[in-house]
Design a protein around this nucleic acid. Structure first.
Lengths: 211, 211, 211, 211
DNA sequence: GATGAATGAGTGTTCATTCAT
DNA sequence: GATGAATGAACACTCATTCAT
């Protein structure tokens, strides 16, 4: 029975991740359960709340992104261009990476979640480390901040309704190549304005009144 | 009272545009009405349908984008870099331009609307013209398609939940600068794969089943 | 101006009568105004209330039925069968006759209306007179009450959704012929039970709770 | 809990049938749910649509009418008058039989439903058989069509607002007795015009524009 | 542990009625 | 006197969530 239960949980996560990406974060939970092949009540047994489901997905995604950043930083010494490029692609490929910023601010309850907080701080640190190293190695222009790179990756990797599903991966590849080129030192004039930072969940949630 | 009515209509459009951008095209219409300072029934008097509201916004946006593309093409002779950069920024600044592809495929009723169809074809042609001219003038690498540039602009200009509202314009400026740099000829290795085209509304709507 | 106003009132009544018959007594008042070629506000100037509109139609119909009953009674001496048959057909032809029972119980406010009360009493008396005379003349079996005859006519003349519009008059003619035949003295065994009376508006309205 | 659910479904059907008869097919579904003692959402769980509810009632009713017609035809040999009279009364007593023609043309979705179509064709055939047999046995005049008899029964059995609820059964009995008498061979002069047919659902729905 | 069923609260949409011009 | 516009309240339908089995 333990095995079945674990399988259910996995299926639910997989289904939720896919549907969140495909149809946005407000899919009917019933649709998630159906895609996972279980009843809606089973979903609720595993995740007492929509929040809980989102939380699990976000944690997973943060973990993967964290590992990718550390791996890339360690690889920079041997193959700077390759390691950097690989990181960008891996980050974009992580649906969870895409989902994280989409989902986190949506859920005020999660803002105070200490585990989430810790994981988030870790991944942000890891990416900052990596970007700093990449800048030292000449892969990345120095007037851009780590957060901005993450934001750009996420902007590109998020699904655009105008883009047919079957072309999504190809478009993401090509757009990321443009971004990586534009992020090279000397690829253009200095960026306007000052670096921008991501929202820290739990702080500025009040600026979306009525939501 | 004719004046008041027109003001209401304007307010409704403004509110809808803002909310569609901020929260996606499925905001509660009640929220739109509230933001415009009128009752929900007044919204329905002006726009008999959610479709009608979206349609009005999309048409507006398509028109603005069309004008921007024509203006830019005419300006390329005098100041290639400036005209191109201005177009990119104007396009990104047009929330409506951003909304067009976001909204059109979302509403099957609009797919067959002939006026919308015509306006869309016109803007796509105008942008293709512009991009071809910009490529001849050396502003844009030649292995990228016009559609992809629009998609990239849209990806960047769409609000990311992880980005605090007050930093949105600054981030968009900076990310676009990166994109424009990456789009320069010679800014990096050839793009992988083949150019990607936008969805033509009314054709592939079936690939988002259940939505 | 007085002329225009009167014309508006007439048009409104005509439109309301037609639409009540065609689509039931709960048509949108806006549809009535539109059919009459005036604005909804004009309808409300003429009839402060849905009740007022119904009241006017009912009064008109009652008057016509009253005249038909008196005319028939006076004609019985000369041509009993013809006068009786003509009354039945005239009553069925009066949309007002059809509408009266449909509309009256629907409007508790009208129950206490003295003018309506008076008109109603008059028409009931006239029909009772007529039926009594017809029974004396051998046109109508004696175990049936005047109210029942009115009810039967109304039941037959009311539009049945299953009957295509274009066959309505023919069906009514044929069904009334069956009814007239069945109402002849000696056409069949005695009727079961005891005669039934129509609802007197304002008395038993409480038996349709929740409406 | 399977038991409770079935009970709910039954209650919903019972409530809907009663309310459709009493107040027409456009009652608030909320009222149906309330009468059945369940929440509106439960109604929707059982019947995804107003159509589905109507469909269930209509199918039930068609089935009962079909059985009554077959039984009556088989009984004609032994007791022609009794079997015929019993059929007429049973048909009138079947609120569902009454509802069938009332409801079907009202819902375009149902017009093309094949199961409904088949059931309808079956009952119409059965009634035509029965009427033909009754005409051969001398119970029914030969210048009337089966459809017209059904229409007449329905016209009589539908509730008239002018008739107090408690007198409805008695009135129906008496009016049907009049009708049966009028339908006897030789009960009166030939019917005017030509026989009329019921609307075949799905064909002439267009003649009620705007409804 | 898993399920089908039930529900309260929300959203889209319509309509009777009122008001400012 | 006539109108277009505005509104509150109703109704259809959906969904997150809870409960009894």
């Amino acid at each position: 029975m333990r095995t079945d239960a674990r399988r259910n949980r996995e299926e639910l996560l997989r289904a939720a991740r896919a549907l969140f990406v495909e149809r946005g974060a407000d899919v009917a939970l019933e649709a998630v359960a159906q895609r996972a092949g279980v009843s809606i009540a089973t979903l609720y047994r595993n995740f007492p709340d929509r929040s809980a489901l989102v939380r699990a997905i976000v944690l997973e995604g943060i973990g993967s992104m964290d590992r990718a950043a550390r791996r890339a930083r360690d690889g920079l010494a041997e193959d700077p261009a390759g390691a950097w490029r690989t990181f960008v692609e891996t980050a974009a490929g992580l649906q969870a990476g895409v989902l994280m910023p989409m989902l986190v601010p949506m859920l005020p309850d999660l803002a105070t979640d200490p585990e989430l907080r810790r994981a988030r701080d870790a991944v942000v640190d890891a990416v900052r480390d990596l970007v700093a190293a990449a800048q030292r190695r000449g892969q990345v222009r120095s007037d851009v901040a780590a957060d901005e790179i993450l934001l750009l990756i996420m902007a590109i990797a998020r699904p655009l309704p105008a883009l047919p599903q079957e072309h999504v991966p190809e478009f993401i590849d090509r757009a990321l190549a443009v971004a990586v080129a534009g992020l090279r030192p000397g690829s253009g004039p200095a960026l306007p304005g000052r670096p921008v930072a991501m929202r820290v969940p739990g702080e500025e949630c009040a600026d979306r009144p009525g939501e």
